[in-house]
Simulated assay, not measured.
Amino acid sequence: MKMNKALAQEIADKVMNVIPYNVNIMDEIGLIIGSGDPERMGTYHQGAVSAIEQGTIVSIYESEGASKPGVNIPIHFRDRIIGVIGISGDPNIVGPFAELVRVTAELLINQELLFRERRIQEQMKEEFLYQWVFRSGDYDTAIINNGEALGINLALERKAIVVKGRMPKEPYLLKQEYYFRLNQESMLYVVPNDSDIVKRIEAIQSSNPIRIGVGGRYTLVSKSVEEARRAIEISERIDLPQTICVYQELKFIDYLTNKDISFEEITNFFKELDENPKGQELTETLICYIKNSGDMNAISKELHIHRNSLAYRLQRIEVLTNKNPKNFMDLFQLFTGYILYKMQKQP
């Protein structure tokens, strides 16, 4: 590490607040880069050069040319001399301050190094996060190794959470949870699939309106990020009232406007039902439910079953699909999936 002028002057100022003597800070070649005497800045200090060459404290008792009486103490960092601190005055008087001054200077240098390393680490982490969450292709060895160096496990399935709007403060993060700002109005959180960060965000939500987009679980994070952003976009465009926008619940809307989106989980459900007599009953029940606008009496009469049996069949559909036919949005998805299945089915 090399001392810069700003750090050298900070050390000189701090030490001079404690002792009533002028202090000079020299770099590794003896050039004055911090001083209580501005006129000496940028000049060579012969006492410092001697201290660097000898690797020990050098005391000057009489003025010789530009050299003035005082003590010059090498500053060590990781077993290497990186500079010298000089205290002007009678060595017999200022000498007892030497060790205190050296320790103070080295503490300040260590603090500065830790701050720099932390800042570099944070910058590297931010750059990696950006590359990671927007990477569309598979992870290669280089990015996996970079992730491991930063303590990020890329093999873990994660989901993306996008928060659009202003929050009063950031939620606390747990292990393997990361975040950074997407733009002025949106924050991105990348968390393990079992994370409860949405609850933590809700707990600190103020009166300011926000939308929370939730993507699916993937190893390739960019896919979940795109889904989380898309969930918010869909909710805003069709004026849905909810704060939490789960892409999986809105995926069918995306399908209606984007034929590249797969709808296999619903169409496969109807395919499986079609191949089983008991399953065909559920399909028949659902279509009858739609045709009769949810009128339980009319449906029971048409299917020749008791209302309790009808309720059981509807419950079975919900259990198998995680979509409640009595909920309009869920019913719309089920019906859309049924239509797609019938249209794709070979005659």
Rank of each mutant, 00 (worst) to 15 (best):
N268A: 09
K5W: 01
I29C: 07
Y247M: 06
E122C: 06
K291V: 03
I29Q: 06
E226N: 13
M343N: 04
Y312L: 14
C288E: 09
L188S: 04
P325Y: 10
I82V: 15
K159F: 05
P38V: 10
D27E: 02
A311I: 02
S206N: 11
P277W: 02
K2M: 07
E122A: 15
A160P: 00
I204W: 06
R102Y: 07
T104C: 08
E170K: 12
L320H: 12
E226P: 00
F134M: 11
K164H: 10
E106H: 05
P209D: 07
R118H: 10
V103T: 08
K14L: 10
K68T: 12
E264K: 09
G213R: 03
S300N: 06
T141P: 00
L174G: 12
L156T: 14
F270K: 04
K251S: 11
I52Y: 10
F328Q: 13
Y139D: 02
K271V: 01
I290G: 03
L150G: 04
I339K: 12
N4S: 01
R316T: 09
I19K: 07
I204N: 05
D194W: 10
R237N: 12
K326N: 12
D274E: 12
R200S: 14
K301N: 12
E177G: 06
G216S: 15
I75L: 15
I287T: 15
R118S: 14
G95L: 06
L7E: 01
I60E: 03
L107I: 05
I93L: 10
M124V: 13
D196F: 09
Q184N: 14
N24C: 06
E117V: 10
L114I: 15
N327R: 08
F134W: 13
L113N: 03
E148H: 12
H45G: 09
F269C: 05
A142R: 15
L108A: 08
S59V: 00
N193P: 00
I143K: 13
Y341W: 15
L188Y: 05
M16I: 10
R237I: 04
M26I: 02
Y61D: 12
T321W: 03
V214Y: 06
S262F: 02
M343C: 07
T219R: 15
F77A: 05
F134S: 09
L129N: 04
T283L: 13
D90E: 09
K68S: 14
G47V: 01
S207F: 07
P74S: 09
N268C: 00
Q248C: 03
A231Q: 04
S293I: 01
R211H: 07
A231N: 04
N208Y: 15
M1T: 09
K159P: 02
Y338W: 13
I152A: 06
F328W: 11
Q9L: 13
I212V: 09
P192S: 06
F128L: 09
Q9E: 10
G83I: 02
